[in-house]
Amino acid sequence: MGALFKRSVVILIAVVVFVSLAAAAFLVPGLKARRSDGEGSKVAIIYVDGVIVGGRGQAGLLGESGGTDAVIRQLHQARDDKTVKAVVLRINSPGGSAPASQEVGTEIKKLRATGKPVVVSMGDVAASGGYWLAAVTDRIYANPATLTGSIGVYIPYTNWQELYRKIGLQSEKIKSGPHKDILSPERPMTAEERAIIQRMVDELYGQFVAVVAEGRKMEPAKVRQLADGRIYTGSQAKELGLVDELGTMYDAIDGAAALAGIAGKPALKEYGKLSPWSLLFGPQDEFSLERLFFRQMRQELPLTAPLALPEKLPEKW
């Protein structure tokens, strides 16, 4: 085969390759623009799972879970991400600490203030503190069998004095003030202390009622009527105006897209997605209510946080 032919073929290949390289320089930015048209309107999905507890929760090598700090960070990321036009909050929580619920609720309000609608999809249960979060959003979707409601606050107290006496344990404290060991499980609560705690619970309850009244556009008196602490099914909550629509998470996503003016099927951006690596090296233990109470019993927590949490949920729902 002639040398000229070989050279010609190689030169032809070189021309094709370099023309392709030049074309890539023009095509790739065009592709980005095309993609950003399609992907520039995302609906973010943020999960609120388990008991709502402030702080970082359980830290692992590749992340953290169980605390509200992670949820708050995800809300900030969704707020700062220009491609995110709406947020779906997938709540599957029986509630938890009132301050933690309040903090997340405040961050949700800030997110909404940027013009991005926030829509809630309730899973198995979105009660008490979980409902607190839902109440501050634009629209609430629940399944007919979802357990929700339980609007109210309590501060748990257990008196272990009799048990301590039986096992011969005598604990003493040197206090700086008469109420420094308020809620101590080692002695009965005094009437004065009960009144102090009751005032706190009443005030927190008032804050909760105000949040629901503002978020659901209801009269506070009407909210107080519904907020006797009972739980409702999704269907009952819809009838009472505590939920907007009965539907699944994908109905909520469509609803969020519609509120944000996204035409067609929206691109989704999931926050807190678990990768195989995070499953291996992430937090090993889930934060559970039992663990929280166990820590309280062992007095690892300095003060009992007021709980926006049902006292007990059915075993199955």
Binding site: V17, S20, A24
Partner: peptide
């Protein structure tokens, strides 16, 4: 490996 470029450009289209 040089043919990756024309291949990628064809794919972009």
């Amino acid at each position: 490996a040089i043919f990756v470029v024309p291949l990628a450009v064809a794919a972009l289209l």
